[in-house]
Nucleic acid binder design. Structure first.
Lengths: 337, 337
DNA sequence: TGGTTTTTCCAAAACGTTTTGGTTAGTTAG
DNA sequence: CTAACTAACCAAAACGTTTTGGAAAAACCA
């Protein structure tokens, strides 16, 4: 059914070698022959079998990304932006993104990564949602498998990465709130397994220290990076005998959930209470009022990661195996801006 | 570097045939031999090359989905839910989802589909955002390529599909608004190239006719399924000399944008104006007030589509080549519920 | 004219599996 | 004892390309 190179060769009474070399631009095929081959291939609708090329060239022409899903209500816009960036960069290089899904830190996740690596299903892997002692990094580095990460781990050996300086960003965010007169500043975090939590909490504490505000553990809550968990955590904070006058969410979704809780508590966000987040997802602009956040351009980060992993696959030296990007604070109505 | 079946065979002094048949469960290998093979494979960390298996078995073990992207601000939660559903169902079947990105109805999109089909890159393709005269359906059917679609086209021959009865859903939604006392009900749609627009507009008009409200073209606006376009369209509607008292968005993002415009216009959504959407994305619950919408469980639809395309790939008869699902109206605060 | 170089084609091997079609030794039944 | 059957292994072919290493004819130069 599908046209193979043998069909083209037969029609032209040439060898399959000549057809292959003609289509691939080898200079030992006469130009006239090349044009005949190109015309016949087009006429017959021939395209090389991707699988056969993969096998011969030892290339999958795909970059892998495992989406950390947790069931049906998986609607974090971070990931649709991230995948769009991965996809657009891959497409521009005639690569595809191979996507699979697994709950983070599960046996299923492990099996997937191992399956991909062992069977050479993809040429490289992009990681996100880094854990402090991330087995994925250990495994992939040990396997000498091309990998890049958004964010860092606390491991002695780490994957090549792009990192946003969240610690500085958070300190800056606290400073912004202090300048707005806030002294009771709460923080809703995530699991301390995730290095993003480690960094952002550290930044928060840096900011407090700089402003000489004593750290108070009752201002700390934990969510799971989702809007509902941010909502629940904020309800608890708002029910304190001395509630905070400002809440920082570990990410935008958490902060959006906290805004919801504040609204339900009869507070006017931006006047009675300040709320801020992190990531700069599109939803943060559309909140009411718009959410103050720290912008990390997810789409372009994703594109850079693909570029980076492709360089590794091609055995090119990385200009910068670790890139640290200074984030940008975007002040909007949710902190009275 | 990677372990091949030859390494396993050499270690056991067996043929590669025996190793292959032992691992694949053939009954012409002695049980004792099989156990030795399994142990050696595990010890050596052998996994079959996916590529070589693909070539021999003529299977890609992947389902393709091309994400209709339009640049960096691509953050429609519909797609992260959809991909999560695709991925989870595929994973449960030891398949992967191959994702690529292209602007809808572009040359790039066409090239991608053709590349995938011709090179047998994927075993089947899932389509969404159906166009009325969708070239993709024509091309894939003509190529006898396994394909399933979320939604229908207006073509004489259509792909196997799952369809939500949006027409009836919209009529019902209009009825709901009429019961709430609304007679000036506007509709913000999308491009009429998309069959979702054709169906939802028809349902809107059905609802007006049933309520004996004359259709008024000045209540019709067009967006592009994004929040910002919904916002702009709603501003225009609200600036009419006789503005509508209710606005229906073609999808939830459009409606959320319209809510934003209403807020800016000083209107209280759910009291001064009603707004409703379609899709039931998670964001619709979290709007303030929560958005009345028509629920279509994106995640489970995606899972069903994967199941369906796998049946086609396996040459199994489809229980239902066309499934029509009746949607559920979810009344929330945005329509005064 | 003969030797050397260049052009342009081609057979075979390679990639790593799975499947086909045997072969051989051991066992069983008449 | 002999013929038929079964168990359990194996070489070769297959999948569809790309690459290696020639071979042969034409062109060039002394």
């Amino acid at each position: 059914m599908p046209i193979s190179i043998r069909d083209v060769a037969r029609q032209l009474n040439l060898s399959i070698t000549t057809v292959s070399r003609a289509l691939d631009g080898y200079d030992d095929v006469a130009e006239e022959t090349r044009q005949r081959v190109i015309a016949a291939a087009r006429e017959l609708g021939y395209a090389p079998s991707h699988t056969a090329r993969q096998l011969r060239r030892q290339r999958a022409d795909a970059i892998g990304y495992i989406l950390p899903t947790s069931g049906p209500r998986f609607s974090d816009p971070f990931f649709s932006e991230f995948i769009a960036g991965l996809g657009d960069e891959a497409t521009s290089r005639d690569l595809d993104i191979l996507v699979s899904t697994a709950p983070p830190d599960s046996a299923a996740e492990r099996q997937l990564y191992e399956r991909w690596v062992r069977s050479r299903r993809v040429d490289g892997i992009v990681l996100s949602r880094m854990r402090a002692y991330d087995w994925r990094v250990k495994y992939l580095l040990k396997s000498h498998f091309p990998v890049v990460a958004l964010g860092h781990t606390l491991l002695a050996e780490d994957a090549p990465q792009i990192e946003i300086n969240a610690r500085a960003g958070f300190a800056h965010l606290v400073q912004h709130l202090v300048e707005r007169g806030h002294r009771r500043i709460a923080y809703i975090g995530a699991s301390s397994d995730l290095t993003l939590q480690v960094d952002r909490l550290a930044g928060y504490r840096d900011g407090l220290a700089t402003a000489q505000i004593p750290f108070d553990a009752s201002w700390i809550e934990q969510g799971d990076l989702t809007r509902p968990s941010g909502y629940q955590a904020a309800l608890r904070l708002l029910n304190l005998s001395e509630p905070p006058t400002a809440i920082i969410g570990v990410n935008d979704l958490t902060a959006l959930g906290a805004m919801h809780a504040a609204h339900e508590h009869g507070l006017v966000v931006g006047r009675d209470i300040a709320v801020a987040g992190y990531d700069g997802i599109e939803d943060s602009e559309h909140a009411q009022p718009p959410l103050t956040t720290i912008n990390s351009s997810v789409y372009s980060l994703a594109r850079r990661l693909v570029k980076m992993v492709c360089a590794i696959v091609a055995n090119e030296p990385l200009a910068e195996p670790r890139t640290l990007i200074e984030p940008e604070l975007i002040v909007r109505g949710s902190t009275g801006g």
